[in-house]
Amino acid sequence: MFETATQGIITGILMGAIYALIALGLSIVFGIMNVTNFAHGDFVMLSMYLSFAVGSALAWDAVATPLITAPLMFLFGIITYYLLIDRTLRQMYVVQLAVTVGLQILMRSAALIIWQAQPRALQYSFIQGNIQIGDFQILTSRLFSAVVSLIFIAGMAYFLSKTWAGRAMRAASDDLGAASLMGVNYHKTYALTFAIGSSITALAGGLVMSFQQTDPVGGIRFGLLSWAVLALAGLGSLPGLIVAGIIVGVVESLTVSFFDPRSRLLGVYAIFILVLWLRPRGLFGRR
């Protein structure tokens, strides 16, 4: 009982760090541009497929594939921004929903056309195996992914607060008009923001591919998971994002080990709904 719980919490914390990374991409896009990207989970799905393609073509390890997939997803983000998102900024809110859901259907069917319906996985990663601490096991691939995720989130916090581009992004989120007067070109800033958000999913996708497989409808799970993390964390706090990611990961992992693997998302949604009712701006949100 105690052992199962501890093991579940350990697994949950490690997964939670990756969920925080996935939610970071969404948080940047939603927090800075106020764009609701319903296709975010499918960006992760596409990234995982790209990792699969690169990893199997070059016989690379999954965790190395973001070296190629991140620039690709960056490009994909820029194209998506100028082709679709930029045109929805001045429209009614529902147009954004319609366009990003359309994008979601498009990405899903594109994955189905290119990689067919069966799940795809890469060869075992070099970081396979596990570390034994007492009675508990830690999968090395997950530990590695969690550490990389945390380092990346810290790096992103530095980028947003210390570099000119990062400051421009935050300024545009605080007051678009004033930022424009200070010489921030919001089209460029938004394109950069969206592309960064999109390339973060490439990193996350590569990490997840080191221990999971991907299929064309896998985006639903990552999409709703990252919205749940974001709702819990609130906007504007990166440490909050990590805590929220870990809470979601632990709840998911405990539901699986104590209740039923098929119910893995139920606990997560219970939290999600409760947060919406009781604390709409999240645990750490500034607005």
Binding site: G102, I105, S109, A111, I113
Partner: peptide, 9 residues
């Protein structure tokens, strides 16, 4: 498979 959905989207 999926091509019709892509066009539709």
């Amino acid at each position: 498979a999926g091509l019709y959905l892509a066009v539709y989207a």
